[in-house]
Design a protein around this nucleic acid. Structure first.
Length: 555
RNA sequence: GGCGGAGUAGCUCAGUGGUAGAGCAGGGGACUCAUAAGCCCUUGGUCGGUGGUUCAAAUCCGCCCUCCGCUACCA
């Protein structure tokens, strides 16, 4: 039921300074699930993810490695795309802040802010690290040798003053407070919203949006000169004296570039404002305070919702990072759990609204308990019994009222949809798996093997009941298998194949029937078919062999 | 320091006044369709500490301890 409703969602763009860790891609997997769900519902869906490439750190790292910044980021971006492919991430566009249309978008935003009187020349001063640029006062340390940056203790910091353009964030304080009040679900979860509101009420300061000096001049050229005229030179290049756009100002704009701004007004009118920005808790302020103000300044609408997710933490609650060496490699993770298994366990084991400590063990336990034992085995035993007792011919499920499973399904589906659309991705799966548990109980309560025996002995009623029970169980497998498609896109077709159903969705979730119609109990009851030979969906993993003692860093 | 959140079974957490719960992990049993999976039963907790209100407190109030988040320009 494609009702023409559109859904535009984004992830934060990843900082392209290294290979991606699973803790970074977690967010993208979650957003991909939401995107797939909307596609399968029939919404005209647009899912944007990509990379943030203009930081000073990146420029400096490239200099350190003796190559161009462009070469440096191209390599990192390739790592991201490979890992995302391995995890079946299917964006409608992978945006890079070095893309030409994004550069145009960022410059246009600066021009609009300037035309609107929202930017002005000022001075920015602070401790400047030759390696990392300006440092936050809270990040520097006073020592006997002077002020140093903890990351490079041997390099003394310089107190520098720059002439910068400032954005008049202070002018938007009242409007931001009003926006938060009028749109209580603008920022979620609620405790994040409260934190942001507290920040706004504490008073907003203007922030600088340009940089005079970056290594190699890396960044998007600032399009306006000090005198307020265009910084475009006669030879078609940008005046280096104008500096570059500060990387955060540049980065946020990717969300509108990805919607068609400013080149394609028609597309932009369709896709903007975004329905959902999925972001990490560390960048909530930029997305919920700076970003709306930037948009309003340019005469554009704020995004509708911003969801702030938590982090995967290593044992002891430590944040995962490359430098700590306690991160999980997404490619190793996919190798161990499979593409679908990896997506499932990371989204089931980590609540999407807060942090969670994870370990290799915890993921293996979750995989075995939920995927191999509960659902995989349910499908396996159901298909096996259908083959053994009914010659492989798939019986239809009983009408909802005649079947405990059929009766319970509508509640399960409603809760699943509520949780999923409310970004509680872990709770959505929990609802589905409660239903799986119910189906396993039905097997033991009905004992199809006993019914089969009685039927063989001439009890026609037992045969009738056997067909009904197995029909219900097969239907339960079909429904769960289909409902989890956003989470486990390649498992669903395998479930359908074993059950003898055709499967019509494409690899990104587009193209099939509106999923809610197909998710009704008995929706395909009229289709005859035969089950195939049973084949385990999720082979059990051995905890010992999976690297029990290695910790998350060395799977 | 200020504001906010949390401390309940080995692990992850639910439970806001009335005899301590779930899932996973551990133990036992019956069954056998199945990936030794599933089902049933079960071990396990002075509900962070302390004082108070109450007939009754994990739940309300005071104080204390521990942990976490936010407290602006690395991204």
């Amino acid at each position: 039921m494609s009702d023409g409703s559109r859904y535009y969602l984004t992830t934060a763009i990843a900082y392209a300074n290294n290979k991606p860790g699973l803790h970074t891609l977690y967010e993208v997997v979650g957003a991909d699930v939401i995107a797939r769900w909307h596609r399968m519902k029939g919404d005209d869906t647009r899912f944007l993810t990509g990379t943030d490439e203009h930081s000073i750190n990146i420029a400096q790292s490239a200099v350190d490695e003796g190559r161009s910044a462009r070469e440096f980021v191209d390599e990192k971006v390739a790592y991201f795309r490979t890992a995302e492919d391995a995890l079946a991430i299917a964006p409608d566009r992978f945006i890079r802040t070095t893309d030409p249309d994004h550069i145009r978008a960022a410059q246009e935003m600066v021009r609009r802010a300037h035309a609107n009187g929202d930017i002005y020349l000022g001075t920015y001063e602070g401790w400047y690290c030759p390696n990392e640029g300006f440092r936050n006062p809270t990040d520097v340390q006073e020592t006997a040798r002077g002020t140093i940056c903890p990351n490079h203790p041997e390099v003394p910091l310089q107190w520098l003053t720059e002439r910068n353009w400032f954005f008049r964030l202070s002018a938007y304080q009242e409007r931001l407070e009003r926006h938060f009040a009028e749109h209580p679900d603008f920022v979620q979860p609620d405790y994040r919203r409260n934190e942001m509101l507290g920040f706004i009420r504490g008073g907003l300061e203007d922030f600088s949006i340009s940089r005079e000096r970056t290594p190699g001049g890396w960044g998007i050229p600032f399009p306006i000169s000090e005198d307020g005229a265009s910084a475009l030179l006669e030879d078609g290049t940008w005046d280096p004296e104008a500096g570059v756009i500060y990387v955060w100002y540049d980065a946020l704009i990717n969300y509108i570039t990805g919607a068609g701004f400013p080149d394609d007004p028609e597309a932009f009118a369709r896709w903007w404002p975004a329905d959902l920005h999925v972001i990490g808790k560390d960048i909530a302020r930029f997305h919920t305070i700076f970003w709306p103000a930037m948009l309003w300044s340019a005469g554009l609408d704020a995004p509708r919702h911003v969801w702030v997710h938590g982090w995967l933490l290593a044992a002891g609650g430590e944040r995962m990072s490359k430098s700590r060496g306690n991160f999980l490699d997404p490619n190793d993770f996919v190798t161990a759990f499979g593409q679908d298994g990896a997506r499932y366990v990371v989204l089931r084991e980590v609540p999407f609204d807060r942090d969670a400590e994870v370990s290799w063990d915890s993921f293996v336990r979750r995989y075995n308990a939920d995927l191999a034992n509960d659902f995989g085995n349910l499908l396996n035993r159901t298909v096996s019994m259908t083959n053994r007792y009914l010659g492989g011919e798939r019986p239809a499920p009983r009408a909802g009222g005649d079947s405990p499973l059929g009766e319970g399904w509508s509640d399960t589906l409603r809760l699943y949809q509520d949780r999923l659309e409310g970004c509680l991705l872990h709770d959505a799966l929990a609802e589905l798996w409660e239903f799986v548990g119910g189906a396993n109980k039905v097997v033991d309560a009905e004992q199809p093997w006993a019914l089969a025996k009685a039927w063989k002995a001439g009890d026609e009623a037992a045969g009738e009941r056997l067909r009904g029970v197995l029909g219900d169980l097969l239907e339960a497998c079909r429904l769960v298998g289909l409902a989890v498609a956003p989470y486990m896109p390649s498992v669903t077709p395998r479930v359908h194949a074993q059950l003898g159903f055709a499967y019509g969705y494409g690899s990104d979730g587009n193209g099939g029937p509106a999923i809610l119609e197909d998710l009704a109990w008995g929706a395909r009851a009229a289709e005859p078919g035969r089950v195939s030979a049973p084949e385990p969906l999720f082979p059990r993993l051995d905890v010992e062999e999976s690297g029990k003692d290695d910790g998350p860093g060395k799977p």
